[in-house]
Amino acid sequence: MGHDAQETDAAAAVDFKEVQSTEQFKELRKRHRSFVFPMSIAFLLWYFAYVLLADYAVEFMSTKVWGNINIGLILGLLQFVSTFAITGWYVSYSNRKLDPIASEIRHGIEGHEFDKHGNPVGGAAK
């Protein structure tokens, strides 16, 4: 497949270490991580809190709230709601905070276009 060879070409053409050390890239990385890490911890904690309750607090979860609908079912359905909400939140965050800066960096280093295999072509155009 020439997989290795082409990556070496691309790496030689673009100084990724230099890009990595630019303020702009550091800002992108910071924005990405400052969203996805806390959010991942939050939803995992909420999920495991739910699993632990279902596992060890059966009495509490079985408390009826309305008709036959108990706390366990409500918390379970809230897991659906929070999943949908985090999905929407992440998409809007990416569109506003991540995509513009990512494409700016991309256009900055892709003065030379990449062909479909990821090889830089026509390196002169800047």
């Binding site: 990724f16 990595q20 890239f25 990385r29 830089p120």
Partner: peptide
């Protein structure tokens, strides 16, 4: 560096 830059920006 290449992997990090590519993964976040989509370069190449």
């Amino acid at each position: 560096a290449e992997m990090e830059v590519r993964s976040l920006t989509g370069v190449g």
